[in-house]
């Protein structure tokens, strides 16, 4: 078995798909892996894939042309997911590769996504759901603080790389705001300037201290919000279990009202 080891990113995985395809080892003899900690097997041959934007773009173009945008979006969402979930039956990159191989061999290829009984498809389904769910949680629970400069700042800690989805949502929602969403897990930031599109950028150098200099009104609105939050609950129905079922505890620290 030839194992193509790719970087855990969309470009990394799609480059892996390109290299694996171009290798002509035969699909049955090929596996992709995005898991660095994976065990090394004695009779496998390991090939390191170097992410290459050109190769990745070629694969993207082919997928969109042959299988359509919804299929491509599914692959993207799957690549954005955190592949370290223990319940997963298959490596993330390998599931993507297998699904692409299967889809391109069929006349109506995009329909393979409906074949949920196939291991690679069920894996893709599970990972997409993971990304969708967390992106939705983020859109719900993310909180902005107004800084002295008037910029809205938010810090999040998502397991999956959902920042593009989140930034896109707020770009449409707040066209006249400057905002910055910092994903502290992946050390990247989504930046939006008034009436522009958003960009995603590396933020490993971000000065966290600067993001704590709030505007004059900020603390007042936080207090008003907390007061609203405490008052809206009905005493006779208090139900902490239901509350933490609906807003998982790991998101609490980035909110205002539950932190």
């Amino acid at each position: 078995m030839y194992v193509f080891q790719c970087e855990d990113s969309l470009d990394g995985i799609l480059t892996g798909v390109y290299d694996a395809w171009a290798s002509h080892y035969g699909h049955k003899n090929i596996q992709l892996s995005s898991d660095k900690s994976g065990e090394i097997m004695l009779f496998n041959q390991y090939i390191t894939v170097i992410p290459d934007f050109e190769k990745s773009r070629k694969v993207s173009r082919t997928l969109i042309r042959r299988l359509g945008i919804p299929f491509y979006e599914t692959i993207c969402k799957c690549a954005m997911a955190d592949g370290n979930c223990k319940k997963l039956s298959m490596d993330k990159a390998n599931a993507i590769y297998q699904a692409i191989v299967m889809a391109l061999a069929l006349p109506e290829g995009a329909r393979v996504l409906e074949y949920l009984a196939q291991p690679c498809i069920s894996c893709i389904f599970q990972l997409c759901r993971q990304t969708d769910n967390e992106a939705h949680y983020m859109i719900e629970f993310i909180r902005f603080a107004e800084l002295e400069s008037g910029i809205l700042f938010s810090m999040i800690h998502p397991k999956n790389n959902v920042l593009p989805v989140v930034a896109e949502h707020f770009t449409n929602r707040f066209p006249l705001e400057n905002f910055l969403i910092y994903d502290a897990t992946h050390k990247i930031a989504g930046i939006h300037k008034v009436q522009k599109d958003y960009i995603i950028t590396d933020a490993s150098e971000l000065n966290i201290e600067l993001t704590k200099q709030y505007s004059m009104d900020e603390q007042e609105y936080r207090r008003l919000w907390k007061a609203f939050f405490d008052t809206i609950a009905i005493e006779a129905r208090i139900n902490p279990k239901l509350q933490s079922q609906n807003i998982p505890k790991r998101y609490w620290k980035d909110t205002v009202e539950l932190a």
Partner: peptide
Amino acid sequence: QGDGTGIGNAKSCGICHSFAADGRCI
């Protein structure tokens, strides 16, 4: 969708933003 001249948009699925101590959506 927002029209770009103000603030806000709406999603048909609805979006909750928090859950009060009684577990109800805010």
